[in-house]
Structures are given as C-alpha cells and as structure tokens.
Computed example of a mutant assay.
Amino acid sequence: MSADTMTVQDVVLGLWQALSARDWDGVKAHLSDDCIYLDVPVGPAAAAKGPDDIVKRLKIGLEPLASYENFSGLMVDDGSNAMYEHHEEWHWATGESAVLKFVSVHRVVDGKVSLWKDYWDMSALANHAPPSWLEDFATADMSWVYDATGEV
C-alpha cells in the first residue's frame, strides 16, 4: 500500500503495531522527520522531535520490559487527525505489571505521523512499576528532550 492509498487509520495502526512489537525501525518509518511526540502528563517542555529522538524517548520506558503489548480500541478520524483509545500492558522481569489506558491523538500528513500526543494516567504506571523505575528514568539518556511549548 502506498502513502497515497493509506488511510489515517492505516498509518496510526501501523505505528502502534510496530511499537507493540518494539520494532524501532518500523516505528521510525511511520514518523515524519519533524514529528513531535508529547507525553501529555509530562508536558511540552519534555517532548521529543524527529524519529530518532522519539525512539530514544520510547525506549526509556519500553526497552527494559520483559513484555509489552498494545491492545487496540476505538479510533475516530477526520481525514488527517485521529483519536485512538487503547491500552498497553507492561510486564517487568521482577514480576510487576501495569495496564495503562490511553487516548492518543495523531496528525497524519503525507502518510506519516507528524504529531503524536499521549493522554494517560501516570499514577497507573507509578503505582505498579518496580521501585527502581523512576530512578532508572532519572538516569536515562535525556538527549531527546525537545521543548514543544507553544507548538502543541
């Protein structure tokens, strides 16, 4: 399927299928060069911009997991923007697990995601993650941080 024949929903679902498989190159292939990723609970001052930095950001949380999976839900779109209700299941090697409910908003331009905003309850993660989770995050490579204040 070419970018011309792909729907917004095809692009968004392709991105999430790649992310669920932790196929980092597949994730990058769905993002525009100037795509902004915003984890809304963290705020726009800690966004990521561009496929490489977005993947760096995603890997901080997802790469250390023993298993991770996205479960599809309702998606609505207006032809260029999609709202996607879904949930993720995170499992750590130490036995902890969390179910995280999301609404993700995506803008798709020319067959690529150009804006990605995740709305979710961070306490659902913090309440179920291993005690070292925040410490690990605090010592992670933060070179991806992009201040998107005023852009999103």
Rank of each mutant, 00 (worst) to 15 (best):
Ser20Cys: 07
Ala21Met: 08
Asp23Gln: 02
Trp24Ala: 01
Trp24Pro: 01
Asp25Ala: 06
Gly26Ala: 00
Val27Glu: 04
Val27Phe: 01
Lys28Thr: 02
Ala29Arg: 04
Ala29Cys: 03
His30Val: 01
His30Cys: 13
Leu31Asp: 10
Ser32Glu: 13
Asp33Ser: 14
Cys35Thr: 12
Ile36Trp: 12
Ile36Met: 14
Tyr37Val: 06
Tyr37Cys: 09
Tyr37Pro: 06
Tyr37Phe: 15
Val40Thr: 04
Pro41Asp: 11
Gly43Trp: 08
Gly43Ala: 12
Gly43Gln: 12
Pro44Val: 05
Ala46Tyr: 08
Ala46Ser: 11
Ala46Thr: 11
Ala47His: 05
Ala47Tyr: 00
Lys49His: 08
Gly50Met: 11
Asp53Gln: 15
Ile54Val: 15
Ile54Trp: 07
Val55Met: 07
Val55Ala: 10
Leu58Lys: 01
Lys59Val: 00
Lys59Arg: 06
Leu62Ile: 06
Glu63Asn: 02
Leu65Gln: 01
Tyr68Pro: 05
Glu69Ile: 12
Phe71Met: 15
Phe71Glu: 12
Phe71Gly: 10
Ser72Glu: 15
Gly73Pro: 03
Leu74Val: 12
Met75Pro: 06
Val76Gln: 03
Val76Trp: 01
Asp77Val: 04
Asp78Val: 03
Gly79Arg: 03
Glu85Ser: 03
His86Gly: 01
His86Gln: 05
His87Asn: 07
His87Lys: 07
Glu88Gly: 11
Glu89Ile: 14
Glu89Gln: 09
Trp90Asn: 09
Trp90Ser: 03
Trp90Asp: 04
His91Met: 11
His91Leu: 12
Trp92Ala: 09
Ala93Gln: 10
Thr94Leu: 05
Thr94Trp: 04
Thr94Lys: 09
Thr94Ser: 15
Gly95Ile: 14
Glu96Lys: 15
Glu96Pro: 15
Ser97Asn: 11
Val99Ile: 14
Leu100Phe: 05
Lys101Cys: 02
Val105Thr: 08
Val105Cys: 08
His106Phe: 12
His106Ile: 00
